[in-house]
Simulated assay, not measured.
Amino acid sequence: MDYRYANKRKTLAIVVYPTVTLTAARKKRDEARDLLAKGVDPSLAKAINKQVKKHAHENTFEAIALEWHIKQSTT
């Protein structure tokens, strides 16, 4: 999706074609347009959501327990 934000032309890759239906892709596009209407950069919002999901995965009990176990076994 091509759009303009802060007087700059930007491109947002929403989804990969064969894995998502056309209806779902249009829904994602409409969500990106809603963000633009609110004054939010969709590519920045996508990047922030990706970081939040990554951070949430890193702070699971399993990840912390494995890290603790590795540190305990090396000392």
Rank of each mutant, 00 (worst) to 15 (best):
R26I: 12
R26Q: 10
K50S: 10
A6K: 13
E62Y: 05
L36H: 00
T75F: 11
D2V: 02
V16N: 15
T11M: 07
I70C: 08
K50G: 09
T11S: 09
W68K: 14
I14T: 08
P18T: 06
P18C: 08
H69R: 07
L12D: 00
K27L: 10
K27Q: 12
N7F: 15
T19M: 07
V16M: 13
H57V: 14
D2A: 07
T60N: 02
I14P: 02
K46E: 00
A32Q: 04
N59M: 06
K28V: 06
R26H: 09
L35H: 00
K27R: 14
P42S: 02
I14A: 02
R33G: 03
L22N: 08
R4P: 04
L35C: 02
K28Q: 15
L22A: 10
K54T: 06
I70D: 15
Y5M: 04
L44H: 10
K71F: 14
A45G: 02
E31Q: 08
P18G: 05
I64W: 04
N59H: 11
P18Y: 10
F61A: 08
A65C: 11
P42R: 00
K50N: 10
N59D: 04
I14S: 03
Q51S: 07
A45T: 00
V15S: 10
Q51I: 05
N59R: 11
D30M: 10
Y5H: 08
K10L: 03
T19Q: 13
I48L: 13
Y3V: 01
S73F: 06
L44Y: 12
V15W: 12
E62G: 06
R4V: 12
I64S: 03
A47C: 05
V40W: 05
K8H: 07
L44S: 11
Q51G: 04
R9Q: 08
L44Q: 09
R33Q: 13
T23F: 06
T11V: 09
P42T: 01
V16W: 13
R33L: 09
D41Y: 01
H69Q: 09
I14Y: 03
E31A: 12
